[in-house]
Design a protein around this nucleic acid. Structure first.
Lengths: 346, 346
DNA sequence: CTGTTAGCGCGTTCAA
DNA sequence: TTGAACGCGCTAACAG
């Protein structure tokens, strides 16, 4: 019952069994109307009997299209990217496309081979969350297939991309803390070389300027890459002579690290951060989160890509930039007005 | 700079530019020793100039192997499965294999087409987390390629599979609650039709038997499918005349739903559950979690598959069943012996 | 309604 | 050291 070697049936085999040519089998399987009902049935019977399945590789070669698109993400273990991947899958499936997924593990140097490999496999297009700022390999890939950027913009490449409102979201969340009277808000950020890191810092800064406060340089920590580094940075900040009274974190992992640090230190501080995460509503902490639909980033990226694939033969449309909106969610401490979530807008 | 239509260069094009035959290009790209250094260089130059990439589809057709394996999971949004997918990726990459990922969304009826589609795409093998108990389509797929089951066992199919210690883990965690003196432990479980659901209930029951307690039927809720249903079930239990004094949850989503219910109800109850999850250590709840390495399930499954692929031509080895170990983690309430995690084995 | 021819891009086999 | 012929499995275009 396991895979029988040397036995994979071909159209020819099916045809022989059904007493027709391979061509007729092809027609039946394609639902070509010009086939008599009698032969149709014979063919289907033979297909069933042999367990025949069309060889999509051969079809791709003949038809010139693999029916696959490639997706490269930086870290599938981050719910953000798995949601993004689901969004891509959803739209791809609607269009009869299969998704080949690669994970760069945030190692920028691994990305080129992943991208090249996907191109070799004849994917018809690519959606990429670029891991680094070097993007020549993506330029090269664009000579073969359309490429859509997700979550981070292209650097000097003319192509579609889907972003979230990084600046706006960071500004808005920071403004919430400032409006609550905080004047010493710490910034816990990912590497500034990353677009999102830079952009969210800009938003943080802008919010301060709007209320006429200069952020204290000693409260700014950048280059945090995961929950553990964020935890250490937070503990460090708490131990400073003049510690912060609130925190702003640029992504979910950093927020979680900061929260863990506060927990271990036995302290509570208002925390704002980019990205919502599981159980954020039951932590009993004053939490201000920049939330958005990660699936939607994937869906939009897939739509842009599909659109380009469908207009392959005409003039390529001008490159587009889509932005997915953010909104701020506030969770209160349980001591506030009850344990429920405090709904909030801007 | 975008994909130039009608321009994808072939080996022939490269050969023309390098003034050799396509065959020689093929040899150069394959690192075939029998090529003069001079021509090698000319060929590589031409490859660079044209941005040539071998057509993997054509190679697959000729060589009879796509270099891809298929992975079907039920819910990529669940960190458990994205970790599993990462584990698969890791091992696949080591062996030069690419992973094509499909998400069944826990809809058992969608699974057959996903599996068939992957087979059509000439994947060399499949790793499947089966969504339902109907598995004929998987039997059919096994006629084409080896199939490894992950997280849930095959039903009447003779093939490899990787499981976690469902029974053992559930028994152990439940035993912890019972050892703490609880006699009314509620069971919040996923559908009993799922192997994991049944198995974990068995473990729950066994732990009770071992201390001579008969579980109260009114405290057993099965068929929970997500965090929301678990939350409702928990609230319902809490409102019963004779409510539970502790909870056992069969997976991460159910645990989270239960925790949310407790939070909303303003109550605290010891919770035990299968699967670890982010921030479980900072909730300040008495939490007993059955933890294990989800990546490892993927890695082991991939190893089993690769092993079969490598022995394709010999007699297929007898089917194997691998089990990934679990261990119990206990987090204390902050009122206990300090806010840190209480490390525990047992 | 059905079959034959040809070729998608590549690599194995054989010959030069 | 290099090239020509052939075929992997399938299907568009043309017979019949």
């Amino acid at each position: 019952m396991t895979a029988r070697r040397g036995s994979v049936p071909t159209m020819h085999d099916v045809g022989k069994l059904a007493q027709v040519s391979a061509m007729t089998v092809s027609r039946v399987l394609k639902n070509d109307p010009g086939v008599s009902e009698a032969t149709r049935e014979r063919v289907f019977a033979a297909v069933d009997r042999l367990g025949y399945r069309r060889n999509q590789t051969a079809r791709s070669l003949r038809l010139g299209g693999s029916g696959m698109i490639g997706l490269v993400v930086t870290n599938l273990a981050n719910p953000f990217y798995s949601r993004l991947a689901l969004g891509v899958q959803e739209v791809a499936t609607e269009h009869g496309l299969r998704v080949v997924l690669s994970n760069s593990g945030e190692q920028a140097d691994r990305e080129p081979e992943l991208v090249d490999g996907l191109v070799d496999h004849q994917v018809e297009g690519l959606i990429v969350v670029p891991a680094g700022s070097r993007q020549q390999h993506l330029a090269a890939a664009m000579r073969h297939v359309p490429v859509v950027f997700a979550a981070r913009p292209p650097a000097g490449l003319d192509t579609d991309c889907v972003l979230v409102e990084d600046f706006h979201g960071a500004r808005e969340a920071t403004a919430c803390l400032l409006a609550d009277g905080h004047t010493r808000v710490a910034f816990l950020g990912n590497p500034p070389a990353l677009y999102t890191g830079a952009e969210r810092l800009r938003g943080f800064w802008a919010a301060h300027e709007e209320v006429g406060i200069e952020p204290d340089g000693t409260l700014i920590r950048q280059g945090l890459t995961d929950s553990a580094t964020a935890e250490r940075a937070t503990l460090d900040l708490l131990g400073q002579p003049d510690p912060p009274t609130a925190l702003f974190c640029t992504n979910n992992r950093i927020s979680q690290g900061a929260i863990r640090a506060l927990y271990k230190a036995g302290t509570t501080l208002p925390v704002a951060g980019f990205d919502n995460f599981d159980l954020s509503d039951v932590l009993g902490l004053p939490l201000t989160l920049v939330s958005y639909d990660a699936d939607e980033i994937g869906r939009q990226a897939a739509r842009l890509l599909v659109d380009r694939l469908e207009h392959r033969d005409g003039e390529p449309p001008a490159s587009r930039r889509v932005t997915v909106p953010t909104h701020v969610i506030r969770h209160g401490a349980p001591s506030g007005d009850g344990p429920g979530q405090a709904p909030t807008g801007a």
